[in-house]
Amino acid sequence: MELQKKTLPVEEANGWYLMKTEKRCWSEEFIDEDSGDRTTEERSEILCGKGTQINDIIKSLLLENGITTVKVSNVALLGEQDKKFNLWEIAIKVLTGKGNKKSYIVTADSPAAAEVFISEYLEVNMEAVFKLIKINEQDYNKVIKIYDSEKEQLELNKKRICWYKAQIYSMLDDGDDESEGSSAGSRNILVQATSFEKAMAAIKAVMIQNEFDSIYNTFKKIEELNIVDVFMPDENLVYYSDEDLTKITVED
């Protein structure tokens, strides 16, 4: 049987299966006993679970609670994808022109969503035929980027800007008792810079600025990646400027 998905008025949905759990939602007001302030709280109650087949009784229940349209399928869909936003590296091969390979990092909730995003981006921004080679999930604890204004100036000055992957070994100092308050492990950091030295300095600058204050770190390795660009929401990125690096002495 071919799977069909539709959005239907409840009156026309007899025999179809709900694609999501339907709930009755309402607001309740109460007085906070401590402050005396009036507070509103959202409440909900499940009416029908995902996969429920719609009949006259279910229709009446939905309509009585103000639900007039539903997403349905012709077979019961009981599984549900756990969607979380992760980083995905997408490798492509350019089939026209120089035909070289390129990689992009994309934030998405699935490989399919990452593929759609980069395909649409390249269709607009790349005048070439390209082929997606692979999509791999990435594990980075931090993504550090040059401020856009500085990056533009570097590009005008013909500076080569690259993405580097640094692996550092971290010892977290969470308390006075070393046996109970410390933990250790490797962390992967993705950083945009003009050289290996600048990449290391940028990581150290970020460590000083934020939660890395209480972490003792040792660089295990750093390598240049063949990444063209990284697409992430600004709130998930850490930016730095060249001024930040002047405060850091890079060890040999």
Rank of each mutant, 00 (worst) to 15 (best):
F219V: 15
L47F: 07
Y169E: 07
M126G: 00
E42D: 13
N226S: 10
S182N: 15
P111V: 05
N210L: 08
M171R: 13
N136W: 09
K131I: 07
I92A: 03
S195F: 01
L78K: 10
F212S: 13
F85W: 08
Q209A: 09
E243I: 02
Y164V: 01
D174A: 14
N236S: 08
Q192T: 00
F231L: 05
E197M: 05
K50P: 00
K93E: 01
V72Q: 05
I248P: 01
G79S: 15
L3D: 09
C162M: 11
T96I: 09
S182K: 14
I146D: 02
F30R: 14
A128P: 03
G15S: 00
S179G: 09
R187N: 14
I189A: 04
N65W: 08
K131D: 12
T246Y: 02
S186L: 15
D37V: 09
M207G: 12
D82S: 11
M1P: 12
K165N: 03
A128F: 05
E197A: 07
N217Q: 13
F30M: 10
Q53M: 12
K131T: 06
T69P: 03
W88R: 04
Q138R: 12
K158N: 11
A91M: 04
T52W: 06
I208T: 11
A76S: 08
N236I: 02
A128W: 06
C48P: 00
R38A: 10
P233W: 06
K83D: 06
I215G: 02
N74D: 05
E11R: 10
V116G: 07
S179P: 01
I146L: 03
N74E: 08
K93I: 00
G49N: 13
T69D: 14
Y239P: 00
K220V: 15
S179I: 11
L225V: 01
E115V: 06
S44Y: 05
F196M: 10
L78M: 12
R38V: 10
L3P: 07
D252Y: 07
E11L: 11
I92R: 00
F231A: 03
I135P: 08
A76Q: 01
I57V: 15
Q53K: 14
S214R: 15
L172K: 04
Y17D: 02
L62D: 02
K134Y: 13
Q167L: 11
D139A: 09
T96E: 06
L77H: 07
I222A: 01
Q167D: 08
D148C: 02
I92H: 01
D213C: 11
K102W: 12
N125A: 05
R43Y: 11
W26N: 04
K83T: 14
M19T: 04
W26H: 06
Y104N: 03
A113V: 07
L132R: 09
F117P: 02
G51V: 03
S214L: 14
S182F: 14
G99A: 08
I31K: 14
V191C: 03
K20G: 09
N65D: 07
S241R: 06
R187I: 12
D109W: 10
K102D: 10
S182C: 15
C162W: 14
L3V: 12
F117C: 02
E29P: 04
L156G: 10
A193N: 02
K165D: 03
S186R: 15
L77F: 06
K101S: 09
S179E: 15
